[in-house]
């Protein structure tokens, strides 16, 4: 299933974006592709709501029936990985927060062919986020990187995509 991943900075600015697709089978349809950043941007509202909740699982955004899905997987005392935070017409949106409140967000699309609802594999998505988090910390350790600036390193890009291939787009 195609995914759209972005790291969002403090001012809603993406500092990194990528689409994890498979050119033969899994791609976002063009009308969705252009909306992706906006869908992701919209779910930041809910991410921020969860960001400051002591028990983000229990206070899940009403209007989605995904609250119970989240509480199953994420452990009760960890609040970095927020699980599925939002949904938008068959798309699922997951979120993750770094300690410096960088927002890692991903739009998961179902298989376009059969239109089945997206099932987010919390375990692999969570480890993907954690690995990217580590790469982000490494980026931050570079004195030539400034907070909230786009991460343009090809190495970073390559690593993230390799991780996505390993964990997401199987």
């Amino acid at each position: 299933m195609p995914c759209y991943f972005a790291i969002i900075g403090a001012k809603d600015n993406p500092i990194y974006e990528a689409e994890f697709t498979n050119p033969h089978l899994n791609q976002f349809p063009p009308e969705l592709k252009e909306l992706n950043p906006f869908i992701l941007h919209a779910s930041l509202d809910i991410l921020e709501d969860l960001q400051w909740q002591t028990h983000p699982q229990s206070g899940a955004h009403s209007g989605t029936n995904s609250g119970f899905l989240r509480s199953r997987h994420s452990s009760s005392n960890s609040n970095c990985y927020l699980g599925k935070i939002d949904h938008f017409y068959g798309l699922a949106i997951t979120g993750y927060l770094s300690y410096g409140n960088m927002k890692f967000v991903m739009v998961h699309s179902g298989n376009a062919n059969n239109g089945s609802p997206v099932v987010v594999d919390d375990v692999s998505v969570k480890s993907f986020y954690q690995e990217v988090h580590e790469l982000y910390v490494k980026t931050l350790m570079n004195p030539f990187y400034t907070l909230n600036e786009p991460i343009t390193s090809p190495v970073f890009d390559g690593r993230v995509r390799a991780l996505a291939k390993k964990l997401l787009t199987k």
């Binding site: 990194y16 990528a18 498979n22 950043p37 991460i151 190495v155 890009d157």
Partner: peptide, 11 residues
């Protein structure tokens, strides 16, 4: 690498 002005690239 990621190019801000271009937006997301496919894998």
């Amino acid at each position: 690498g990621y190019d801000y002005t271009m937006g997301p690239q496919q894998t």
